[in-house]
Design a protein around this nucleic acid. Sequence first.
DNA 1: CTGAAAGCGCTTACAG
DNA 2: CTGAAAGCGCTTACAG
Lengths: 331, 331
Amino acid sequence: MATLKDVAKLACVDVSTVSRALNNTSYVHPETKARILAAVKELSYQPNVLAQGLRQGKRHTIGVVVPRLHLTVFAEITQGIERAARKLGYAILICTTEEDAKAERECLNRLRNGFVDGIIIAGTGANNRLVRDIHSSGIAVAQVVRRQERDISSVVADYEACGYDAAKFLASKGCREIGLINGPMHIAPYRGRYDGYRKAMAELGLPEISTTSLEACNSFEYGYQCANQLLDENPELDAIMAAVDVQGLGAMRAMKERGVQVPEQVRLVSLTGHAVGSMLETSMTSLEVPAYEMGEKVTRMIVEEIESPSDRKPSPQHLVFPAALVEREST
Amino acid sequence: MATLKDVAKLACVDVSTVSRALNNTSYVHPETKARILAAVKELSYQPNVLAQGLRQGKRHTIGVVVPRLHLTVFAEITQGIERAARKLGYAILICTTEEDAKAERECLNRLRNGFVDGIIIAGTGANNRLVRDIHSSGIAVAQVVRRQERDISSVVADYEACGYDAAKFLASKGCREIGLINGPMHIAPYRGRYDGYRKAMAELGLPEISTTSLEACNSFEYGYQCANQLLDENPELDAIMAAVDVQGLGAMRAMKERGVQVPEQVRLVSLTGHAVGSMLETSMTSLEVPAYEMGEKVTRMIVEEIESPSDRKPSPQHLVFPAALVEREST
DNA sequence: CTGAAAGCGCTTACAG
DNA sequence: CTGAAAGCGCTTACAG
C-alpha cells in the first residue's frame, strides 16, 4: 500500500503539500497539484483511514447494537442505518446481543475505545448506566426502537398507539374477548403496547386477557405457545394481538393446528409489521412500522450529533413514528 | 479518555513499561505492575484501538459484504459471523449492496484502506477483479454462499445437490411436471441449483420447466409472478421448486389465490431453507442450509488467514456444507 | 527490570 | 504557495 510519503517523493514535494492538495485544505499551485494527482494515480494511493482517524480524533464509523437480525424488525432497521451511513461517509460496526446483558456490556465496552464516533442502540435495558457513561464521555449515542433514557436522542414507533389502535379496530369488528401476546414489560415497546391495549380495553369496558411463556419472546414458539394458552383458557376468545410478526406466525400456526378459522372465529393482528404480513398464505393485518426510514433517520440524527462542535451539541431529540394499520385477510 | 501517558505519570513509570505490563510482553517487577494496575483502574484507562491498530498494522475488524439482510439467508449468516468474530476478538463492519455493482465497489474500496484486516463477501460477481486485487494486496478475503474465485477461500452450501435432491424427492412422490423458480445464472448458487435440477430431470427423463420475471429475484414478488406463469403455461404442473424461502412464500400465496391445493395438486419445496419454512400455516418442505454454522466457519477461516504470518499464508480452502431435506406439509 | 527513542501514516499550526 | 516540525496514542527494538 502506497503512503503519503511515497506520493510526496514521486511528486517531489513535501507530504504536507500532498495532504493539502488532496483535502483541498488550502490553495496549492495548479501545476504542483497536477503532479501530485498524477503520482496518486500512478501509485493508486488511498489514504489510511486509521491514521486519519488517530490524527483527527474521528473514525467515521458508527456502532450498532441490536438484539438480533434474522426475522426481526432490526434487520430492516439495520439496512436503513447502513444505507444512510454510507451516504454520509460512515461505516457501521454491528453487534448482536441476543438480549444478553453481558454480551451487550462487552460490545459497548469495546465500541467505546476508539472504535466508533457514535453508537446506535436498541438495548436490553440492563446496561443503561453504562450507556449514559459512554454518552457523557463524549461519544454520540442514539436509541432506536427501545427508548430507555430521556437524555439520549431516540427514534421509535408509537407503540402505545399500536396497541390502542389495534384493540379499537378489533372491537369495531365486533370482537369482545381480545387476547394479547406481548413481551417483558421492562422493555419500552412491550410496555407501550400493553399500555395502549389496556387503555382501549378500559374504554371499551372489555376484560384484559393475556398470557406469557418461558420461550424467548421474540419468537415463533412464544407466539405459538401463548396462542394455545389463550385459546385453552378463553374458549370464547375472538381476537389475538401479537406484539411482533413472528409471534403472529406462531399464533396463526397454532390456530391452524386447532382447526380455528382465521378470521371467522378468531381475528389476528400483528403490532409490529415489517413486510412479512403480506407474504403469507392468510395475509396478516398489521401495524406497519417504517423500519427502513427509522434506521435512516436515527443515523442522520447521530451524525449530526457527531459532527457538531462539542461546545454546542444538539439537545436530545425524541422522534416518534406513527405506524399504519394495514388491513389484510386475518381480520 | 485517559491515555497511556496519564497512566504512566500516575504510576511514576515510563509509558513503555505500562505497555509491557498491560500486554504481558515482558517481565515487569510485581510491585511496579501493581502500581500500574492501580493507576489503570483509577483512571479507568482503556487502550485506544486506533492507535494500537496503526502501530501494529492490525485492526481486529472484519468487513462483511452481503446483498441484504432482511428475510434472506444472509441475516442468519451475518449473525453467525458476528458471534464467531466476537469470540475471536474481532468486530465486524457491514455493507449491504442490494446487488448493485457500484455500491459494492464503493464498499470494497473503503474497506481496503485500513478499515479491516479481512473481508467476507457474498458478491454480485461484478467486481471479481477488484476482489482479487484486494486479496493479492495482502488483505485476507473469504467468500461465503457465492463462490466466484478459485484462489480465494470459500464456504458454501451444496447448491447442486439441493437442486438434484429436491427434484428426485419430488419425482419419488410421483411428480412429473416439476417447475423451477430460480435466479440469474451468473450467480453461482443459482447456477448450481439449476445444474442439479437439470441433471435430475435428465436422469428421470422429465422435461425442464422454468420461467423468469423482471422482479428482483430474491423476493416474494418474484416467486409470486413466476409461480403464476408456471401455472399458466403448464396446466399439468404438479410441483414447484423455489430457489429461496421468500420465493416459496410467493409461490404459496399465488397458489392459494388460484385455489390450487398444496400439496394435493402441486407440491412445493424451497431450496434454501433458513428457519422460515417451519413457521408457516402450511409448513414448507425445504433444504435447510446451516447458515449460522457457515457464518461461524467462514469467520474462523478468515481469522486464520489474517493471523498467519505473511510468508506462509494457508492455501485457499473450499468448504461445502450439505443441506438437509426437511419434509413438511407442502409436499 | 526499565527508560529513551523511533516510528506507524496522517494533519495542521507555524514560518517563510 | 510550500516546507519543516510536532503530535495523535500506541508498541518495540535498543540500551543499560
